[in-house]
């Protein structure tokens, strides 16, 4: 029962590992080169999924500040004196406006998901798709050379000297 609770409490991590193992199995055991590359993509997305899930917090929103949070008291009078907020005001005025608004910018980190893993994994997605593109280009080259994308047939042809 304890084991069941330990598994069900973190069920998403177990499913990430299942997806990762499916990808690893496909990379090793599949005979077709395109199937191997699909398996590689599944493996990569499973790892990215794990990293993004680290940044999730309970009841947290997307990591973007809304206008009301940056200008809390400016919201109701924004229609009244629009000229005071325009960019044509001189330096002294804009500095005073900064003094007025910046101390009230109180952001609770628990309201937002952690954006650092998102940014890191954004790079990993792009790297993953370029890896897939290079792999598929090599697959096309292999097909032009050997007339097959099955690994066993290609190995047979290489062994028999074409």
């Amino acid at each position: 029962m304890e084991i069941f609770e330990a598994i069900s409490a973190k069920f998403n991590f177990w499913i990430y590992i299942i997806i990762m193992m499916i990808g690893l199995y496909a990379m090793i055991a599949k005979n077709n080169l395109i199937k191997k590359l699909i398996g590689m993509s599944i493996f990569q997305t499973a790892i990215i999924l794990f990293y993004v899930s680290i940044g999730v917090k309970d009841g947290a929103s997307i990591p973007i500040l809304y206008h009301d949070q940056v200008h809390p008291e400016h919201h109701d009078e924004s229609h009244g004196d629009h000229s005071a907020h325009s960019p044509s005001t001189d330096g002294h005025d804009s500095h005073a406006a900064e003094d007025r608004y910046l101390p009230e910018l109180v952001v609770d980190g628990n309201d937002f998901a952690n954006p650092l893993p998102h940014v890191l994994m954004l790079t990993a997605i792009v790297v993953g798709v370029s890896t897939l593109g290079v792999g598929l280009a090599v697959t096309q080259k292999v097909y032009r050379e050997y007339g097959s994308i099955e690994e066993s047939e290609i190995l047979e042809m290489i062994k028999s000297g074409k």
Binding site: S53, V56, I62, A113, H118, L122
Partner: peptide
């Protein structure tokens, strides 16, 4: 998971 930027990229790429 509130990772909308990653979701955008995954949908496009």
């Amino acid at each position: 998971m509130a990772a909308v930027d990653v979701a955008f990229t995954e949908a496009a790429v």
